[in-house]
């Protein structure tokens, strides 16, 4: 009797300690795995950042160093980018195209989505089906005739081919996501507003749109990253150097015919410069995006 009283808690403590050690070990293993994967995935970009601040001589020394020392540190890469080349101009060009798209696509797409989600009319299903069918037709098929069309219209001298399509909703995916979201917005508010005499456009603008904040933000972020990294469109349509976006300027300078950026530090600086704004947008927006809250909201 006395024995069990004595050993009971001690044995329990021993078992508890063992179990606790097992949990701790498991947790340590998980952290080790997570860290290993994180290091693998992130080190190239840290390396790009670090190499953009090295002098050309320091870069060409073997063995390669991951971080510059006081002697190897240099802003030469960025100087070449901004002083010898017009990278602020290219940034401005990119921002201009992005800004027009980021305003026009959510507006046009939400108008169309409202029509599909909230208005009963004879063409609803057929126009929606037509829109969805465009997802099956690959861009490679349409690009040649579109180029011919835009050049016949005389648009290939400027950015019009890269912004005018945005006025038509900017593609089926955005409209589809908005339709899915709007269908889950309850109709009671709509009906009440109609009884109070609000017309269809007022109901769209004052009732439905304010409730679509998260999905409109999601579409805007999609449009941002799409236009920011778009390479093919600017490559085909932007003929004059003054109009180049960052994507084509970097391509022509680092790989293509211009080859103005020969030094690795400048090339890395260009890569960092182009990634800077997407990284900021991502860091501001990351919780919603990475935790899947947005996509959860879309699936409703």
């Amino acid at each position: 009797m006395t024995q069990t009283v004595k050993t009971g808690p001690a044995a329990a403590a021993a078992i508890h300690k063992k179990a606790r050690r097992k949990v701790l070990l498991k947790r340590a293993l998980i952290y080790a795995g997570l860290s290993l994967v994180a290091v693998y995935l992130v080190f190239p970009y840290v390396f790009m950042l670090s190499r953009s601040f090295m002098s050309e001589r320091y870069i060409s020394n073997l063995p390669i160093k991951f971080f510059p020392n006081a002697e190897g540190f240099s802003l030469e890469g960025y100087r070449v980018l901004f002083v010898e080349n017009n990278y602020f101009q290219y940034l401005f060009n990119t921002v201009k195209i992005m800004a027009i798209n980021i305003v026009a696509v959510p507006i046009a797409a939400s108008l169309c989505a409202y029509g599909f989600a909230k208005v009963r009319f004879s063409g609803n299903k057929i126009i929606f089906a037509m829109m969805m069918s465009t997802l099956m037709i690959p861009g490679t098929v349409t690009q040649v005739p579109l180029y011919v069309l835009f050049s016949d219209l005389g648009w290939t001298q400027d950015i019009r081919p890269l912004v005018i399509p945005a006025l038509f909703g900017g593609g089926a995916i955005n409209i589809f996501l908005l339709v899915q979201f709007m269908r889950n917005v309850p109709n009671e508010l709509e009906n009440a507003a109609r009884i109070d005499g609000a017309n269809m456009f007022q109901r769209y603008l004052f009732i439905t749109i304010p409730l679509c904040g998260p999905i409109l933000l999601y579409v805007a972020v999609n449009v941002f990253s799409g236009t920011w990294s778009d390479f093919y469109g600017p490559l085909i349509y932007l003929k004059s150097e003054d109009a180049y976006t960052l994507a084509v300027a970097i391509y022509y300078d680092c790989v293509g015919p211009r080859a103005d950026l020969n030094a690795i530090n400048t090339q890395m600086a260009a890569g960092v410069f182009m990634s800077f704004l997407p990284a900021v947008v991502f860091l501001v927006y990351q919780r919603k995006l990475v935790d899947g809250i947005m996509i959860g909201a879309i699936k409703g």
Partner: peptide, 9 residues
């Protein structure tokens, strides 16, 4: 993070 780096970069 790697996903947001533009393809050209």
């Amino acid at each position: 993070l790697p996903v947001i780096i533009p393809g050209v970069s």
